[in-house]
Design a protein around this nucleic acid. Structure first.
Length: 278
DNA sequence: TCCCAGGCTCTCT
DNA sequence: AGAGAGCATGGG
């Protein structure tokens, strides 16, 4: 699915799948990457700063990433061992899915750190992406560790001793108490995030639902964007709208084996086109 | 001013 | 078990 070359302390990738940094990093699954003035994308993930770009000839460049770091961190983060072209081909027997995946074919579903993802999607509830980013940014600046390019995402252990009042500067609103409940349960082992990727989907979901402020949608986002559960299908307002408008209420059978991936295509398509509801 | 945002909890039938 | 209000905050 890709070949990698390591030189000048950078990693150079050639992918067989179509790949878009804006679609992947700014489609609402990650909240801490942004496009830089020089056209590269930069952000902090997995406790380190990453800067990358796609060159004119389609090569992906990860700057200041050596082979060890690529293998240990970014290969999995960018889900590089999954064949997206094959998935798109299979779902394209459905005309609407073909259209939607054509719009968002550059998306890859990331495998992000468990705590960061869970916490971020707790913050996302009944919220908009711009404000989600703001709250997460203030959370990291206030309680994360300083590193090159900004601040790391604070650990559950760091947040567990705090109270919701301590989070007032984040302006997270009613979500502050949920963040603290999640931090405490993760830090004290009541909820074990590390095993979720190896549990059956429903068992993993039940584990996350033990946290106050985590319902089906937030749990599914965590399972999909962090724990490799592409059988999770987060239903937000956009997806519910799209299912009704595009598919008469139910996901086409072609999509079921790849529900989570397809969810991203539909989400992207729905937001781009606004489903032609004006 | 009201409505909405990658929803969930709580209460009331 | 299903419906509906309330929830913090900020942008349109």
């Amino acid at each position: 699915m890709f070949t990698a070359e390591f030189k000048n302390n950078n990693t150079y990738l050639t992918l067989s799948d179509p790949f878009s940094l804006s679609q992947t990093l700014d489609c609402g699954q990650a909240f801490r990457f942004e496009e830089l003035a020089n056209g590269r994308w930069g952000g902090i993930a997995c406790d380190r700063y990453l800067e990358l770009e796609i060159t004119a000839d389609g090569q992906v460049v990860l700057y200041n990433v050596n082979e060890t770091e690529f293998e240990n961190v970014w290969r999995d983060f960018f889900d590089l061992d999954r064949d997206y072209s094959k998935i798109i081909e299979e779902i394209s027997t459905n005309e609407v899915l073909k259209n939607a995946s054509e719009y968002g074919k550059g998306i890859r579903v990331l495998n992000q750190p468990p705590w960061e993802t869970l916490c971020s999607f707790i913050i996302s509830q009944n919220n908009n992406i711009k404000r989600i980013k703001g709250i997460i940014s203030r959370l990291c600046e206030t309680y994360g560790e300083k590193t090159q390019g900004g601040y790391t995402f604070p650990s559950a252990e760091k947040l567990a001793p705090l109270t919701p009042e301590d989070l007032a500067p984040l302006r997270a609103g009613f979500r502050a108490k949920y963040i603290i409940d999640a931090a405490r349960k993760v830090a004290n082992g009541e909820v074990n995030l590390e095993v979720l990727k190896d549990l059956p989907y429903l068992d993993a979901r039940a584990e996350l639902l033990k946290i106050k402020g985590v319902g089906p949608k937030v749990a599914d986002c965590a399972l999909l964007f962090s724990h490799r559960h592409i059988d999770a299908f987060p239903k937000d307002v956009w997806i519910k709208r799209a299912l009704t408008v595009l598919f008469g209420g139910e996901l086409p059978k072609e999509a079921v084996p790849y529900a989570g991936i397809v969810q991203q295509y539909i989400f992207f398509f729905a937001r781009e086109t606004k489903l032609n509801i004006e």
